[in-house]
């Protein structure tokens, strides 16, 4: 039966969208930065995997251990140098992230000439079938990684001290500061984590796609849509929002027309937002200043 296969395709695609968005969700939800350069952070993760392969011969699933911390550091630097000085002007932050996008894309273009690299992996392309359903290891890994990351992130925010300070800062900056939390440092760490998550997505995506400096742009719109659809700052929101987008795209693409699938899920996205302006899992008022609860 085709329909089961499409279902699985949609869920796995949702895994891709979710993994790309989970870092953006954190940054957007906590620091309230519209980071246009998020797609480029994913792109850097991909090229990081390629670099690890080209210089050290590493399989991308091993390269994760190098690339993710590297992106964490990149995130810290970007936030400290560019975004933090602009924390009072959110509009300028948007402009700055756009400048960052241009720099990152074109730096990679200048270095690589735009050649379409591939990152080979011993296991990633392997596909197994269960009846009519076909599952590819690379996509399954992404799905599992997303699930694991979502759970880990949830626990991190709930149980660890840093996680709690992130939540505190999200709910009420002034109160957090009064309680002795270093708000600026918390923001920087959050941005670092969000960038690391983008890097994770990049590395895990590298066996699937042909790399190009502009590949971040392929995902950024979907990532924003997923974040907004899921509800600001909600980890579950990014998770299930991604699933929904993936499923709609897969079904619309197969049963209606691959040319129209983007328009279709964007339309559904708009309809959902109009009906529920805070997103599916968002708290009412969350998108305003801070939000009251995050369970």
């Amino acid at each position: 039966m085709d329909i089961l296969n499409i279902l699985v395709v949609g869920l796995l695609l949702g895994g891709i969208y979710g993994l790309v968005s989970i870092g953006l969700n954190l940054i957007f939800g906590v620091i309230r930065i519209v980071n246009f350069a998020h797609g480029e952070l994913v792109m850097l993760g991909m090229y990081g995997a390629y670099l690890a392969y080209a210089t050290l011969g590493l399989d991308p699933y091993i390269a994760v251990l190098l690339v993710v911390p590297a992106l964490f550091v990149v995130g810290i630097i970007v936030h400290r140098l560019v975004l933090q000085p602009l924390h009072a002007e959110s509009n300028m932050q948007i402009f700055a992230t756009f400048g960052l996008l241009i720099i990152l894309q074109n730096a990679v273009l200048a270095i690589t000439r735009g050649e379409g690299f591939s990152v080979p992996s011993k296991v990633a392309g392997f596909t197994f079938g269960v009846g009519d359903i076909r599952v590819t290891v690379s996509r399954l890994v992404i799905f599992l990684a997303l699930t694991a990351t979502a759970i880990a992130l949830h626990l991190f925010l709930k149980r660890t001290l840093i996680g709690k300070s992130i939540r505190a800062v999200t709910q009420d900056r002034q109160a957090a500061r009064l309680m002795g939390i270093n708000v600026e440092r918390t923001f920087t760490i959050t941005f670092g984590i969000g960038s690391a998550l983008a890097g994770l997505a990049g590395v895990l995506l590298s066996p699937i796609y042909t790399l190009s400096p502009g590949i971040g742009g392929n995902f950024i719109l979907a990532a924003f849509a997923v974040v907004v659809l899921g509800g600001l700052g909600s980890v579950a929101g990014a998770y299930f929002g991604g699933m929904i987008v993936g499923l709609v795209e897969a079904f619309a693409g197969f049963y209606i027309d691959p040319e129209l699938k983007q328009a279709i899920w964007f339309l559904i996205f708009l309809v959902v937002l109009i009906v529920r302006p805070t997103g599916l899992f968002g708290q009412v008022g969350a998108e305003e200043v801070g939000f009251r609860e995050q369970n």
Binding site: D2, N5, I6, V9, L13, I16, Y17, G217, N218, F219, A222, E249, A250, G253, F254, P258, E259, K261, Q262
Partner: peptide, 20 residues
């Protein structure tokens, strides 16, 4: 005759329709 966007994140739908 099928059309797709060259930057699409996923083209499984195209392949499955053609396979059909």
């Amino acid at each position: 005759q099928g059309a797709h966007n060259f930057r699409a994140a996923d083209l499984t739908d195209v392949v499955l329709r053609t396979k059909r």
